[in-house]
Simulated assay, not measured.
Amino acid sequence: MTDTHPILRLESLALVAVGGFAGANARYLVGQFVPGALGTLAVNVLGSFLLGFLLYEAILGGFIGQETRAVLGTGVLSSFTTYSTFALETALLDSPLWMVGNVVATYGLGFAGVLLGRAVARALYGGAA
């Protein structure tokens, strides 16, 4: 079988769907403990860290298989993190100062999360990626 065989594509789709189910439920659970914009900030920063690690692990180590990366990256982390909720909750904040602060915090900490994920991957596998 080739990588383009319909059964393999269906298997990948099913794996991403299972990952999406897990990520959405994890996102909901975090929201129960940390509601509102702070909970959304937490999942977006954590998701950025994990996605950064997953990307750099693939570049530097390559121990996590392509299917697992699809489940974790496209499935779990895509449904765990949430731009639409971030945008809505930011618009609903009490003042423009809080809105700007939330945008700056989300993007700044998100980028920092990716860089921290890269640093962890580098520490585990070495390399300069």
Score class of each variant (00 low, 15 high):
M1I: 09
T2G: 15
T4V: 14
I7W: 12
R9N: 13
S12T: 15
A14P: 00
L15S: 10
L15D: 03
V16E: 04
A17C: 11
V18T: 08
G19P: 00
A22V: 14
A22F: 08
A22L: 10
G23C: 06
G23Y: 04
A24V: 01
A26P: 02
R27M: 09
R27N: 12
Y28Q: 15
G31T: 00
G31W: 05
V34M: 14
P35Q: 14
A37F: 03
G39S: 10
G39W: 08
L41K: 10
L41M: 11
N44W: 02
G47S: 14
S48D: 10
F49N: 05
G52H: 06
F53Q: 05
F53I: 03
L55A: 13
Y56R: 05
E57R: 03
G61P: 07
G62L: 01
I64S: 05
I64T: 13
G65R: 15
G65Q: 14
G65E: 13
T68D: 05
A70N: 14
A70K: 14
V71N: 04
V71R: 04
T74V: 11
G75H: 00
L77S: 13
L77H: 11
T81Q: 06
T82V: 03
T82L: 08
Y83P: 05
S84Q: 06
T85V: 04
A91N: 05
L92F: 00
L97I: 06
W98I: 03
G101I: 00
N102L: 13
V104R: 07
A105V: 02
A105D: 00
Y107G: 12
Y107K: 04
G108S: 12
G108T: 09
G108M: 11
A112I: 00
G113D: 03
G113H: 09
L115C: 11
G117Y: 00
A119C: 12
V120S: 12
A121L: 07
A121W: 08
R122T: 09
G127A: 02
A128N: 14
A128D: 13
